[in-house]
Amino acid sequence: MAAKYRILYIDDEVDNLKVFKIAFQNEFAVTIESSPLKGLDLIRNEEFEILVVDQRMPEMTGVEVLENAMQLQRDSVRILLTGYSDMQATINAVNKGKIFYYLSKPWKKEEVKGILLKAIDHYELTKKNKELISRLSQSINELQVFLYRASHDLKAPITTQLGLLNLLREEVTGDSKIYVAKIEEVISRLEKTIDKIRELSDLGYDFVSKNYTSEIAAVVEKVLEKWNQKLQVGEIQVKLNLKQSNDFTLESGLLEMIIDELIENSINFHNKNQTDKWIEIASDFDAPSNMLKLSVKDNGIGIDPTLLDEVTDPFFRGTALSTGNGLGLYIVKRVCDLIHGSIAIHSDGKSGTEVTISIPNLKK
């Protein structure tokens, strides 16, 4: 025989408790208690699928009981019962006690039974959802571990191959040098893809912010130094319009990752036939939302406006000219999701692209 679902009914009127128990003890395992404080002790020590609590009691209100109960047994379905028309109690019950249903006295057995059965359905659905989320989280963690290990295992032989190619370059002559350069280009592209997969695996773990900064300009300069050679070769001018404040704090590693990906995109998709090539990096603070607005704008080849909703998908390439791996903007989107920020991308497909990132202030 299947175990009955457990109900705890708390009401200071003993007659109400007795009637409720007689009415539902055949279908449910009913526990009754006239003292809210003793009722909370029961909740602290026993499991109940459903909590039914009267609103007006001498020791504390039903809303207060349910608010405390929510901290002790978050999964229990909470029902508030009252014989008074009290709109504020209803509002408080919803906001503080997170009730499932609000019942008025006098109640009818069939009506209450129907609500209790719905409460059980709700309890089971919530339980199954939590189990599914737990299994999904486990699968995601296993995938992240696989990506992390695979990227590290692949990195070592690729580094070795690049080292051997450097030695081979010194030995070959003529057309062979061209072939060596092509092989090196392909391997370097694979290395970049592995590096980005490793970045994604790092974001997949329980990320804890450790390196905080208010120096936005310093982070930008660090990234620009990394790309300095490619900027010079491509004759791309960088314009900076950065505002920073000691009242605004960011996670420097994640900010660096965002800027790095956006600058790489702007470099890769600049217009080679254009004489005046530029990238503009700007930052400002939006006081009402307490957010940093960071934008990276260029006058490159742009993105087809019909593809803007897809460019943050993993491995998406918006043009046949792309030599990347389609992970750059996906990584930026993942970082934004991680820090509860947002990304907006604008382009007319002809005169460049502007990516705006909204980043919340970590300073409390």
Rank of each mutant, 00 (worst) to 15 (best):
N228E: 15
T275Q: 07
E235S: 00
D260I: 07
I281H: 05
I263T: 02
N241D: 14
E235M: 02
N241Q: 15
Q237H: 12
L231V: 04
F248Q: 02
L250F: 02
Q274G: 05
S266P: 02
N273V: 09
E264W: 03
F285D: 02
I263A: 02
N241V: 10
F269A: 11
L231F: 09
I263E: 03
I281Y: 08
E280H: 13
M257W: 11
F269D: 03
L242G: 06
E235R: 01
G234Q: 15
N273P: 00
L242C: 05
K272G: 13
N265F: 09
D276K: 13
S252Q: 13
S245G: 10
L240R: 14
D276Y: 11
F285L: 15
I279L: 06
K277F: 11
N241H: 09
M257S: 14
F269T: 02
K272W: 06
L254P: 13
S245H: 08
T249H: 01
F269G: 06
D247N: 08
S266M: 08
E235F: 01
L262Y: 08
E251V: 01
N241R: 15
I267S: 07
S252M: 05
S245C: 12
Q244T: 09
I259T: 09
I236E: 05
S283V: 01
L255D: 06
L231S: 00
D260V: 05
I267E: 07
H270D: 10
E280R: 06
I267P: 03
I259A: 14
H270A: 12
L240P: 03
Q229K: 15
K243T: 04
I279K: 07
Q244M: 11
D260Y: 13
E261C: 02
N271Y: 14
W278M: 04
A282E: 06
G234L: 11
K243F: 00
S266Y: 09
S266H: 13
E251G: 07
I281L: 11
Q244P: 13
N241S: 15
I263C: 05
H270R: 12
W278P: 00
E256P: 07
I263V: 15
K239N: 14
T249R: 08
N246D: 13
M257P: 04
S266D: 08
L254R: 10
N268D: 02
E261L: 04
E261F: 06
W278Q: 11
N241M: 06
Q274W: 09
S266L: 13
K243R: 10
D247Y: 06
F285H: 06
N273K: 12
D260K: 05
N268T: 04
T275P: 02
A282Y: 01
S252I: 00
E256S: 10
Q232S: 11
S252N: 10
E280G: 08
I258W: 03
K239Q: 15
T249M: 01
Q229L: 14
S283G: 05
S245N: 15
Q244Y: 04
L242F: 11
D260R: 07
Q229T: 11
V233G: 00
V233I: 14
S245Y: 12
N265S: 11
E256W: 08
N268G: 02
G234E: 15
S252P: 09
M257A: 11
N246P: 05
G253P: 01
V238R: 10
E280Q: 14
I263Q: 03
L254T: 03
S252A: 12
